[in-house]
């Protein structure tokens, strides 16, 4: 008996930034749609443990999306002469285009790190299509404590350097195999992609001072943060949650910046709790 997983993958072409993008997404389960977005420099594989969780997928259709330039989503035509720099507007366009393309009815949005930042942007400015928001390792603004230009150089492997840097955000308590799998995705990231993601993540401060405008009365916002996250620290997440009336916060001990990937078992109960808050 072959050990097939329940995850299936497909491609769909959407328009964002005025251009077509061939997007890869994976899904498993049925019921309440939950559309999930990965961190900078990574891809849908971060969500595979949740998609392989039969108890979760019994009542939830978990969908994970590779952002353009990431995973198996190709960069747009002409990429070879472009400097990849992600923007908030482009990210939001991709999310909304995927919700429309998949004809998702009242989906929950879940995103980690830069995906968590976008959860807050959506909650503030584009809440209507969504049932609620799970913002993981999310804060209003995180200036860089590193030089993002380190990660795209002709004389060094940006992926390996990126992985070695982000290992600072991985807690030692997770299973060794998953801690290294988490880094593998960064090592595989396309040239300049991690840098381009970080450019958005570390420079966009457009949420600062605006979090109070998020209305959680009909669409809940739940923020989750790992104890060992040195990029978005528990203090950063608490500052963010405190600024959103009605937002809830969970601090996950023994977990870092990549909860669903680095420590699936440790993350699971917190994600189940988050889904329950969206009901």
């Amino acid at each position: 008996m072959s050990a097939f997983e329940p995850i299936t993958g497909r491609y769909v072409t959407i328009t964002a930034g005025g251009r077509p993008h061939r997007i890869y997404f994976e899904e498993a389960g049925q019921g309440q749609p939950v559309i999930c977005f990965h961190t900078a420099g990574a891809d849908t594989r971060q969500w595979r443990h949740i998609m392989n969780d039969a108890e979760i997928t019994e009542r939830h259709r978990i969908i994970a999306v590779d952002m353009p330039w990431h995973g198996k989503s190709l960069p747009p035509e002409g990429w070879q002469t472009e400097e990849y720099l992600l923007t908030t507007d482009f990210y939001i366009e991709v999310v909304l285009a995927m919700v429309a393309a998949l004809e998702l009815d009242n989906p929950v949005y879940a995103g980690c790190s830069m995906g968590g930042r976008i959860a807050l942007q959506l909650a503030l400015n584009h809440a209507a299509p969504f049932k609620g928001f799970i913002a993981i390792e999310a804060s209003d603004y995180q200036p860089a404590w590193y030089d993002i230009d380190w990660f795209h150089r002709p004389d060094a492997h940006g992926g390996e350097m990126g992985a070695a840097l982000v290992s600072a955000n991985i807690a030692p308590q997770g299973p060794e195999a998953e801690r290294w799998n988490t880094q593998w995705m960064f090592m595989q990231s396309g040239p300049g992609v991690f840098r381009g993601d970080l450019s958005f993540y570390t420079q966009d401060d457009s949420l600062v001072g605006k979090l109070g405008g998020i209305d959680t009365s009909s669409r809940p916002v739940h923020i989750m943060v790992g104890e060992y996250d040195m990029t978005c620290t528990p203090e950063d997440a608490k500052r963010t949650a405190d600024a959103i009336p009605g937002a809830t916060l969970a601090v996950m001990p023994g977990i870092g910046h990549f909860p669903m990937s680095e420590n699936p078992e440790g993350f699971r109960p917190y994600f189940v709790e988050a889904l329950a808050k969206m009901a």
């Binding site: 404590w145 840097l165 290992s167 600072a168 807690a171 030692p172 308590q173 104890e227 060992y228 040195m230």
Partner: peptide, 13 residues
């Protein structure tokens, strides 16, 4: 098993 903030050399900074 270092405590949070002491698990990586960048934690010192």
């Amino acid at each position: 098993i270092p405590e949070a903030g002491f698990h990586d050399i960048f934690g010192f900074v």
